[in-house]
Nucleic acid binder design. Structure first.
Lengths: 232, 232
DNA sequence: CGTTCAATTGATCAGCGTCAAACTAGGTGG
DNA sequence: CCACCTAGTTTGACGCTGATCAATTGAACG
């Protein structure tokens, strides 16, 4: 089981180019744990002791303030989270909970930093990864500030279709309420926005989405790589 | 003039710990330029060729979409911007313009990457800096999603007071319209929100703010280090 | 003094959140 | 197998927040 996880982790850009010896060292000190759904793995404000990797399952990153809560991101296999807190040795800015049964790999922060110091390829990968994280949050921020909720939803749907391979019909990966929170809207508002998008050829039945005419929806959504492209 | 800039740049966390020799190398290939106000230094979507450092003056980072514009951040001396794009060799996600006459230092991206590879202290500093940038955008995002505009404004004022040394009266550093855009609201809405905060002891005359009772305003603003503290 | 642009104010309206109720689907237990 | 429970989703009614438009005031500058 562990060996299979090794491969998945090794295939991550973050670990792919580093020395085999150093990778093995990290794996030796890693903890592998399986959690049931709805377990709060970390809470914002806590000190950051481990870099987390989602080997299997699904994890939600969220934040609270004044009795309000918002979903910041969803992490799926194989992805990492709280790299920034690990690097800075600072408190978590977000909480994390499993959404389904999940296998999580925990790397002690101090070991990550130690390997960073002696493995230049890993150091470069950490920088690249952090830069990618930064850019993805900037995009999310532009999304929030420059678009209405219905526009955000339309672009979300276009992106989901791409991730699903481009077929006209596909399944949403998570509950609508989580999608709503991620997009900065209420479930009720999402429900109405979906009907609004019906005018542009989007149909929805449960979690199954069908986009009748992608061009039509695209004209409304006006996607741009500077907000909607992942990873660049 | 250049030598004075050297010191300022050297004092940045990003450059402070690196080898003197490597620092000198970077300074040798750097361009020093002075720009008048309202000059667009870079435009989103362009390839990233230089790491920018604001040696003097003030620079606004902003973004456009569909004829809308929003202020993403204000950079003051001595601060850097677009480190992430430089690292990833990816297009800028934000545009930048001078708000006043500004002296800007330009470091060719390829030289920054070269030094990164041979200077471990610099590499660590880049990682630390990027992690800080990432965390600050996460905070901005939480601010937007979890708070109303008046709450954001109240916390902004509390933070400004701290930065001004804690005195009851202080000056706002930029135009109100820029503050409004940064906080994700319109100038009109900002104007009204300011009057609302009058109920909590905040007075405003032009750019001069007076906070009569900090505790009162704090009870309304409910600041938290996980959103409002810079740099941690 | 006139020009210009930011800031304010008022009126209006759209977007979106809140509250409540009805509806649905998936799972449980009798 | 069906009644029932639970939780997510949808719908409707309502109200607040904040955007838009227009007009006025105010301040900086030539």
């Amino acid at each position: 089981m562990k060996e299979k996880d090794f491969e998945g982790i090794r295939s991550l850009p973050l670990f792919h180019e580093m020395e085999e010896e150093n990778f093995q060292e990290l794996m030796r000190v890693a903890y592998f744990q399986t959690f049931p759904p709805q377990i709060e793995l970390i809470s914002e404000g806590e000190p950051s002791d481990f870099l987390h990797i989602v080997a299997d399952g699904m994890v939600e990153l969220f934040s609270n303030w004044n009795n309000r809560e918002t979903t910041m991101a969803i992490v799926r296999p194989v992805g990492t989270f709280i790299l920034a807190a690990t690097v800075r040795d600072a408190p978590y800015l977000m909480s994390a909970r499993t959404l389904e049964k999940s296998r999580i790999v925990l790397l002690p922060s101090q070991d990550v930093r130690a390997v960073f110091d002696k493995d230049n390829a890993f150091a470069r990968a950490v920088v690249t990864e952090l830069a990618a994280c930064y850019r993805s949050v900037i995009k999310a921020s532009k999304n929030l500030k420059l678009r209405t909720s219905t526009e955000r939803l339309a672009n979300y749907m276009l992106r989901r279709q791409e991730l699903a391979g481009g077929a006209p019909s596909f399944e949403l990966p998570i509950e609508k309420r989580k999608i709503a929170s991620q997009l900065g809207m209420t479930p009720e508002n999402l429900s109405r926005a979906l009907r609004t998008l019906g005018e542009y050829g989007l149909e929805i039945d449960g979690l199954k989405v069908t986009i009748a005419d992608r061009d039509d929806l695209t004209r409304f959504a006006k996607p741009t790589p500077l907000i909607d492209d992942p990873g660049t």
